[in-house]
């Protein structure tokens, strides 16, 4: 891993690939209550873009990535997860108070197989978003901190 990074073609393709990778990861997170996926898998898909960025841009540019915003967003997302769980405290700790009601994600689901409706699900899409943001920030923090420090191995 020398400091220069890859050639100009690889850098341009990485910049062009940023939009499909992040949009696909956000799709997997947001449709967690309809298709297979959910918060953890979608957050990991979003975090592989940071690894691609660090490989194609080299050590000189990737050392200047700041770890402050990722740390703040990870803590805020975990606090939002606990806060959503505490909102339905009238019934129990993790109660789904938005399902089958008339509020934000509260359409009723027709029984049996159906094409998925995005407005259903209750509290689960909000919790999927919180967990997806937390996993993305946490894995990006691990990659950034490990890439920056340590001995200058100059191997591989």
């Amino acid at each position: 891993m020398d400091g220069k990074g890859s050639s100009r073609i690889v850098r341009n393709v990485t910049c062009m690939l940023s939009v499909p990778v992040m949009v696909f990861g956000l799709y997997v997170v947001l449709h967690g209550h309809l298709t297979p996926g959910g918060g953890f898998a979608g957050g990991a898909v979003m975090a592989t873009f940071i690894a691609l960025f660090m490989v194609s841009f080299g050590k000189d540019i990737s050392r200047r990535l700041d770890s402050g915003p990722f740390s703040v967003s990870e803590s805020l997302a975990l606090l939002a997860f606990v806060g959503i769980a505490l909102l339905g405290i009238q019934v129990t700790f993790f109660s789904n108070f938005l399902a089958n009601s008339g509020l934000l994600f509260g359409l009723t689901v027709p029984f049996g197989t159906n094409p998925g409706f995005l407005g259903t699900g209750g509290v689960t899409p909000l919790m999927n978003l919180a967990v997806g943001l937390e996993v993305f920030s946490g894995l990006s923090l691990i990659l950034i901190v490990m890439f920056r420090s340590g001995g200058d191995g100059d191997n591989a």
């Binding site: 689901v109 159906n114 259903t120």
Partner: peptide, 18 residues
Amino acid sequence: EQTGCNNIVTSVVFDYRG
């Protein structure tokens, strides 16, 4: 019927065993 998710795995992970 109770949770409103089509995906039962997500409803078990995030609602019944949150």
